[in-house]
């Protein structure tokens, strides 16, 4: 059973067992505008919660993607290399960035649920 969490940095993580899939939110891609490049981490790289994992560049800005949890990268969405526009077209599905093996699910406790995130971005 998958659960979805959101960070205040406008990332989402879908958790299935001890694996998490991470991307940026619809709200984030709207703010960024047209995404032109995504720099992805290497598989097997380890990150602590809050580390810079990836970079997303739009015509307007370059932004860092932070690890929402500590863990090891187990897959990256190679398609984004050729088609960064997928982040705009399908941010919370086809436009995922990477999958991470979660060290400690306790890291999820300070993330938000969908409703709390909606409240955050509705102002």
């Amino acid at each position: 059973m998958t659960e979805i969490y959101f960070s205040k940095d406008h990332e989402w993580i879908k958790v299935d067992g001890d694996e998490g899939t991470v991307g940026i939110t619809t709200h984030a891609q709207e703010q960024l505008g047209d995404v032109v490049f995504v720099e992805l981490p290497e598989v097997d790289a380890e990150f602590a919660k809050g580390d810079e994992v990836a970079v997303v560049e739009s015509v307007k800005a370059a932004s860092e993607i932070y690890a929402p949890v500590s863990g090891t990268i187990i897959a990256v969405n190679e398609v984004l290399g050729e088609e960064p526009g997928k982040v705009n077209a399908s941010p919370e599905d086809d436009g995922w960035f990477f999958k991470i093996k979660i060290n400690d699910k306790g890291d999820l406790s300070d993330l938000m649920g969908e409703d709390a995130y909606k409240d955050l971005t509705s102002d």
Binding site: V36, E57, S58, V59, K60, A61, A62, E64
Partner: peptide
């Protein structure tokens, strides 16, 4: 140009 200082500032 997103790599440049006027957008990335300290990055």
């Amino acid at each position: 140009s997103t790599r440049e200082q006027h957008i990335r500032r300290e990055k």
